[in-house]
C-alpha cells in the first residue's frame, strides 16, 4: 500500500497543505494566498502573515483532506516546514502540525524548506537526472547547489545579501508596480529595451551572488532620471539579473559535472529567466528540468515529497523551528 504524507508549509506568506503519496503523486494541494494582505505594504509584513496563517490553516487542511477524499487514518505521517522562514509563520504551522500529529497519533517530521524546493522539480514526474546542478531563486533565497542524489546535496554558492526575489520586489516598488514584483517587472520588461548598464556584482568571482548593489543602482538611476522610461529600466534590470544567474550557473556546470540543470523557486517562474536557462542548457548539451509554474512558488507538496527522502534515510528531525538551516542540513 502506498504511504501518504500530509505536508504543511507556512514558512512565509502562503498557507499551503498537500497530500502526496510515496510515488510523488499529488492527491490534493491547496494554497491560501496572502497576496491581498501584503500588497499594500509592497512586501511581506511578518505580523500580518502569522495572523493570516492562524485564520487559514485549519480550513486549508480540511479542504485538502476533503478534495482528496482521504481520512486521517490513511495518513502515514505529517511533514512540516521547520525553517528557514519567518518565525511567527513557522510557529503557527509547526504547532498546528503538532496538534494534529498528537491527536491522530502519527509521526511528525520537521522538513528543511530548501530541501523541499529542490525536490519540487520531481513533483508529478521524475525530471531530475543525477548528478544535477540546481539553481534556487526565490523571494528568500538564491543559491547554486550540486546534487549527487535526492539527499546528497552540496552548497556551491549563495547570496551574500539580498535574494534575487527580494531585489525584484524592491525594484518593482521603485517602479510603482506593486507586490509581488516578479510577474509585473517581467511583463513590463517585455515592452522595453535593455539600454541601461546596471552593475553585475561578483559576476566574475566564484559562485556567490550579491543583489543589494543592483537594487541600489536602480534606485540611484531612478533618482537621477525621474523621467526615465520604466519599461527600459525593467528590461535592463531583468537582463542584468539573467546575466548574473546564467553566468554563475554556467560556471557551476563547468566546474561540477552534471547530467541535468534544474531551476526552482518562485523567481524561476519568470518566462525570461526560463528561456535563458533553456538556451544555456541547449548550448551545453545538458538536460533542463523546470517544474511546472505551480510548483515553483512555495507549496506543501514539495515538503511532503521531501519527507519521503527523510523516511527512506531514517532521518527523523524534530518539528522545531530553525531559522538558520542551509541546503546541506536536514
Amino acid at each position: 500500500m502506498k504511504k501518504i504524507i500530509l505536508g504543511i508549509e507556512t514558512s512565509c506568506d502562503d498557507t499551503a497543505v498537500a497530500l502526496v503519496d510515496s510515488e510523488g503523486n499529488i492527491l490534493s494541494s491547496v494554497i491560501a494566498s496572502q497576496l491581498d494582505i501584503h500588497n499594500e505594504f509592497g512586501g511581506i509584513y511578518p505580523e500580518f502573515a502569522a495572523r493570516a496563517h492562524i485564520s487559514a490553516i485549519l480550513p486549508t487542511i480540511h479542504e485538502t483532506l476533503k478534495k482528496a477524499n482521504i481520512s486521517p487514518k490513511e495518513i502515514s505521517a505529517i511533514a512540516i516546514t521547520r525553517g528557514p522562514g519567518l518565525i511567527g509563520s513557522l510557529l503557527v504551522g509547526i504547532n498546528t502540525a503538532k496538534g494534529l500529529a498528537t491527536g491522530w497519533n502519527i509521526p511528525l517530521i520537521g522538513i528543511n524548506h530548501l530541501r523541499g524546493h529542490l525536490r519540487s522539480a520531481d513533483l508529478e514526474e521524475k525530471r531530475i537526472i543525477y548528478p544535477a546542478t540546481i539553481l534556487l531563486v526565490s523571494g528568500g533565497h538564491t543559491f547554486l547547489a550540486y546534487m549527487q542524489s535526492e539527499t546528497d546535496i552540496k552548497l556551491l554558492g549563495t547570496t551574500r545579501d539580498d535574494s534575487v526575489g527580494e531585489c525584484y520586489d524592491k525594484v518593482a516598488r521603485m517602479l510603482g508596480l506593486g507586490y509581488p514584483g516578479g510577474p509585473a517587472i517581467d511583463k513590463l520588461a517585455k515592452t522595453g529595451t535593455s539600454n541601461i548598464k546596471f552593475p553585475r556584482p561578483l559576476i566574475d568571482k566564484g559562485l556567490e551572488f550579491s543583489f543589494s548593489g543592483l537594487k541600489s543602482a536602480v534606485a540611484r538611476y531612478l533618482d537621477a532620471n525621474p523621467d526615465a522610461n520604466k519599461a527600459d529600466v525593467a528590461a535592463s534590470f531583468v537582463e542584468t539579473v539573467i546575466d548574473v544567474l546564467i553566468t554563475k550557473s554556467k560556471k557551476a556546470l563547468k566546474q561540477f559535472s552534471a547530467k541535468s540543470f534544474a531551476m526552482v523557486g518562485g523567481v524561476s517562474a519568470s518566462p525570461q529567466i526560463r528561456e535563458s536557462a533553456t538556451e544555456m542548457c541547449k548550448k551545453l548539451n545538458i538536460a533542463i528540468c523546470l517544474p511546472p509554474m505551480r510548483w515553483s512558488t512555495d507549496n506543501a507538496a514539495m515538503i511532503a515529497l521531501a519527507a519521503f527522502d527523510y523516511l527512506n534515510l531514517n532521518i527523523t528531525k524534530p518539528a522545531t523551528s530553525d531559522l538558520h538551516l542551509t541546503i546541506e542540513d536536514f
Binding site: 490553516i57 485549519l58 498528537t102
Partner: peptide, 19 residues
C-alpha cells in the same frame, strides 16, 4: 506574548480538530 499565544492557539485548534 504574540508568538506564544499563537503557538498555544494553533496547537489547541488542531488538536480539537483531530479529536
Amino acid at each position: 506574548g504574540t508568538s506564544r499565544v499563537r503557538t498555544g492557539i494553533a496547537f489547541a485548534n488542531s488538536l480539537a480538530y483531530s479529536l
